[in-house]
Measured scan of single mutants.
Amino acid sequence: MGFKLLSKLLVYLTASIMAIASPLAFSVDSSGEYPTVSEIPVGEVRLYQIADGVWSHIATQSFDGAVYPSNGLIVRDGDELLLIDTAWGAKNTAALLAEIEKQIGLPVTRAVSTHFHDDRVGGVDVLRAAGVATYASPSTRRLAEVEGNEIPTHSLEGLSSSGDAVRFGPVELFYPGAAHSTDNLIVYVPSASVLYGGCAIYELSRTSAGNVADADLAEWPTSIERIQQHYPEAQFVIPGHGLPGGLDLLKHTTNVVKAHTNRSVVE
């Protein structure tokens, strides 16, 4: 069995187990497998329904001669939608809004960016022009300005110390501490036991640490421990890039980060 097929099978099995364990909360999309990078042309966006009122959005972007996937989250909030992270750029984010209108038909009224990198804030200006209120932590807003990236308009308070959590509509926002970046936030959907790890969490097929220019490698494993301790009931975990899975993604990420750190020390 090929690795790609095995990865998709694991996603399907995880979703099936969740649907059985929580039949009222989960209505997993039966329309197909989780979209992969090879299936999404740059400039297009796919939506994948995880649970009743919960979707991931998947886009792709060219970077350094390669094409990478990027995940975000959409959560229903009454007759409105909360968006977590842009679709990595203005063109993708405009396509995301169009796809949401086509498939869901509810307005996106608020959006949260989970850290300051372009795959999370690139497209904020498109959201703002569409009347979406954009939010991020003060740290993310400051770092985005320093980096020359787009800056969300509103500040999220109460997320300055490791372990801080605040309720934001249908989700809980959690600051686990520094990891992929010093400002990275985690998003949890309690009604569906869905954990969105953003770039602080890796997919299972990833074996290298990737972009760690703004990471705190020493603190990252401790931050992941905080996530595990705060959300032990999480059933569906979405990484910032690639295929979702279960809580095993947290341990896998820790292993990859520690291996990278150990290699760096040896070198």
Rank of each mutant, 00 (worst) to 15 (best):
55 W>H: 04
101 E>H: 12
10 L>G: 14
36 T>I: 13
146 V>S: 14
251 K>I: 12
167 R>I: 13
22 S>K: 14
60 T>Y: 07
4 K>T: 11
32 G>K: 10
66 A>T: 12
256 V>N: 00
19 A>M: 15
93 T>A: 01
95 A>R: 10
202 Y>Q: 08
132 V>D: 02
105 G>E: 09
104 I>R: 00
243 L>A: 15
186 I>D: 00
174 F>P: 02
97 L>P: 03
173 L>T: 02
165 A>D: 07
254 T>H: 15
235 Q>E: 12
96 L>N: 00
136 A>S: 09
63 F>Y: 11
179 A>S: 05
177 G>V: 04
152 P>K: 01
214 D>Q: 10
9 L>V: 14
259 A>E: 10
3 F>E: 08
196 Y>D: 01
177 G>D: 05
85 D>C: 00
30 S>H: 11
70 S>H: 02
2 G>L: 13
9 L>W: 14
95 A>H: 11
106 L>P: 05
42 V>I: 08
267 E>T: 06
81 L>N: 02
213 A>N: 12
22 S>E: 14
57 H>K: 02
130 A>I: 08
206 R>H: 15
115 H>D: 00
47 L>I: 13
199 C>N: 04
67 V>Y: 15
190 P>M: 07
173 L>M: 06
114 T>R: 01
160 S>K: 14
160 S>H: 13
159 L>K: 00
18 M>G: 13
49 Q>F: 09
149 N>A: 12
102 K>H: 13
101 E>K: 14
14 T>H: 15
120 R>E: 01
220 W>P: 03
35 P>K: 07
70 S>I: 01
100 I>Y: 02
242 G>I: 02
175 Y>E: 01
191 S>W: 15
192 A>Q: 13
189 V>Y: 04
28 V>W: 09
155 S>R: 11
185 L>N: 06
66 A>I: 12
151 I>P: 01
91 K>W: 10
115 H>M: 00
3 F>R: 07
62 S>Y: 07
232 P>N: 08
187 V>G: 01
93 T>H: 02
193 S>V: 07
153 T>E: 15
99 E>H: 14
222 T>V: 12
56 S>F: 11
41 P>E: 12
11 V>R: 11
54 V>W: 03
48 Y>N: 11
11 V>H: 15
9 L>D: 13
139 S>F: 05
53 G>S: 10
150 E>K: 06
72 G>I: 01
225 E>N: 08
68 Y>Q: 06
107 P>E: 09
81 L>D: 00
190 P>A: 10
71 N>V: 03
31 S>Q: 09
58 I>P: 03
25 A>H: 15
42 V>R: 09
203 E>V: 06
16 S>L: 12
188 Y>G: 01
11 V>P: 15
26 F>W: 15
17 I>S: 13
2 G>M: 07
192 A>M: 08
246 G>V: 03
145 E>N: 11
26 F>C: 11
229 Q>I: 13
123 G>M: 03
121 V>D: 02
240 G>S: 04
14 T>M: 08
11 V>L: 08
37 V>M: 14
